Amino acid sequence: MSDERTTRTAVRTITDLARLAGVSPGTVSRALAGKSLVNAKTREKIEAIAREHGFRPNQMASGLRRQKTGVIGVAIPLGHDVRQQISDTFFMTLLGHLADELTLEGYDLMLRRVVPEDDPDWLDRFIGSGMIDGVIVIGQSDQFVRIEDVADGYLPMVVWGNHQQGQRHCVVGTDNRLGGRMAAERLIAAGARRIAFVGDTTPIEFAARFAGAEDVAQRMGADIVALPTHLSPDRASDEIARHLAAADGRIDGIFAATDTLAALCLTALRDRGIAVPDTVRLVGFDDLPIARQTVPPLTTVRQDIAAGARGMVQLLLRRLAGEETESLVLPPQLVIRQSS
């Protein structure tokens, strides 16, 4: 009898129930709320386990979740590079614009840096915390499937990332494949024929940038190779130096996945006595403030980050009002400076 009591009293939270059912906490929450997006067999299994253990969702907590908090959650998942920092210039630029837009709309911002391998249910727990009215996710990282699953039953969520045909979650972001094409076209027009893509192709956005550059290289008879490089500054500098040493003069063009990586490439090239753009042409991506401050200034593919932030907030407000919205894909713009 004591064993039975111990088993029954062990189920105190939705997370406990999810563990027994072999599903995510978000699925349990949606099933107990009667959401039709959870299939009947799964819902019946969850309800049966809940009855067996005498589990009832906390009604006060449920009531609090239905009240407005005036807070929007912003999550940055780092599944592809757990050592990347929120102080990264891209994150800080986008967060600044988001904070401005949310403040104008009367909302506060709650920020979470997430390492998914340590917290697989990070998104379910965040939206089920009762502390936020909606969520903005910055970057899909390697979490596309997790985000898609949550989007099935949770409307007030907008993601900064890359749009793919048929996806269910609402995304705002640049046409990364087109941006990659622009970068490669510029490098080849400047005389490059042996191009290195410096970056990690695991994140969906970077993979699209590389694919676009690869399209152009194949069409125009140039070679391109991906050189995996982390975004965390304590690793990227050493990795870029090793890439250049291994290349030993065999590359004459670099497409860096971000302006931050492009700036590190400039430093590494200078350290090796390689002239930019005379010997190696260089193109970045983002058009962050640093792109105008390097020597030489960076040619880059511009993302309109301010417009993206406005778009994310406006779409989220519409979704908070119960409206299904389409994704927003922004056009990239090639900004030619002196590095190419």
Score class of each variant (00 low, 15 high):
2 S>I: 15
7 T>C: 07
9 T>H: 07
11 V>E: 00
15 T>K: 11
16 D>G: 09
17 L>R: 00
20 L>M: 04
23 V>E: 08
26 G>H: 07
27 T>R: 05
27 T>A: 05
35 K>T: 04
37 L>M: 07
39 N>T: 04
40 A>L: 14
43 R>F: 00
47 E>K: 00
48 A>Q: 15
49 I>V: 15
54 G>L: 02
55 F>A: 01
56 R>A: 14
57 P>A: 12
65 R>G: 11
69 T>N: 06
83 R>G: 11
86 I>N: 07
87 S>M: 06
90 F>M: 09
94 L>A: 06
100 D>P: 04
101 E>I: 08
102 L>C: 02
103 T>F: 12
104 L>T: 04
109 L>W: 03
109 L>C: 08
115 V>H: 14
118 D>M: 13
120 P>I: 14
123 L>V: 08
128 G>M: 05
132 I>W: 06
132 I>H: 07
133 D>P: 08
133 D>F: 14
133 D>R: 09
133 D>Y: 09
134 G>T: 10
136 I>F: 09
138 I>E: 03
142 D>V: 08
142 D>H: 03
142 D>A: 11
143 Q>M: 08
146 R>N: 14
150 V>G: 10
160 W>M: 12
162 N>H: 13
167 Q>W: 03
170 C>D: 08
173 G>M: 12
173 G>T: 05
174 T>A: 08
177 R>G: 15
178 L>Y: 13
182 M>L: 13
184 A>Q: 03
184 A>W: 11
187 L>Y: 11
191 G>Q: 07
196 A>F: 06
196 A>K: 09
198 V>I: 10
202 T>Q: 12
206 F>S: 12
207 A>N: 14
208 A>W: 00
213 A>P: 01
217 A>K: 00
220 M>N: 12
221 G>H: 08
223 D>H: 15
224 I>L: 01
224 I>N: 02
227 L>S: 06
228 P>Q: 09
228 P>G: 11
235 R>D: 12
235 R>P: 13
240 I>Q: 13
241 A>C: 10
245 A>I: 05
246 A>R: 12
247 A>S: 13
248 D>V: 04
250 R>S: 15
252 D>G: 02
253 G>P: 14
262 A>I: 03
266 L>N: 05
267 T>Y: 07
268 A>K: 10
272 R>I: 02
273 G>H: 09
273 G>T: 02
275 A>Y: 00
278 D>F: 04
279 T>Q: 15
280 V>G: 01
285 F>N: 08
286 D>C: 02
288 L>Y: 10
289 P>H: 02
294 T>C: 06
296 P>A: 04
298 L>G: 00
302 R>Y: 01
302 R>I: 06
303 Q>H: 09
303 Q>L: 12
304 D>T: 05
308 G>A: 07
312 M>K: 02
314 Q>E: 15
315 L>N: 13
319 R>V: 04
320 L>W: 11
325 T>R: 11
329 V>Y: 11
332 P>F: 00
332 P>C: 01
333 Q>P: 01
336 I>C: 10
337 R>Q: 06
